[in-house]
């Protein structure tokens, strides 16, 4: 089971929307993942397989596997941005 965090500034809006979309993508590709949304500050201390966030926040994560998304809501764009990473860490 993969652990994925979606991160935005507050952890209650955009990142939840992204979480919903990533849940869908994981289901489409039969990837078992626990996707959780969180705010930027809490994300720092969390251990996980992948952090999904936007470029504005991305540089502040060090030593973590990151996928940078252009949109929190557009499934097509999210898929383009994370699928490669997702499949790789899922070992597919």
């Amino acid at each position: 089971m993969l652990k994925i965090y979606t991160v935005c500034g507050n952890g209650i809006g955009s990142s939840i929307m992204a979480k919903m979309k990533i849940d869908e993508i994981c289901e489409d590709y039969e990837i078992e993942a626990d996707v959780e949304s969180t705010d930027f500050n809490s994300a720092q201390g969390k251990s996980c397989d992948l952090i999904v966030t936007i470029k504005e926040l991305a540089d502040q994560f060090e030593g973590k596997r990151l996928a940078v998304i252009r949109s929190y809501t557009n499934k097509r764009k999210i898929k383009e941005d994370i699928l490669e990473d997702l499949l790789e860490i899922a070992g597919k």
Binding site: C8, G9, S14, F40, E56, L57, T73, N74
Partner: peptide, 13 residues
């Protein structure tokens, strides 16, 4: 503040 700190990511679509 959110917009100022983290940037205009709240423009969703």
């Amino acid at each position: 503040e959110t917009v100022k700190n983290i940037g205009p990511y709240i423009v969703m679509e």
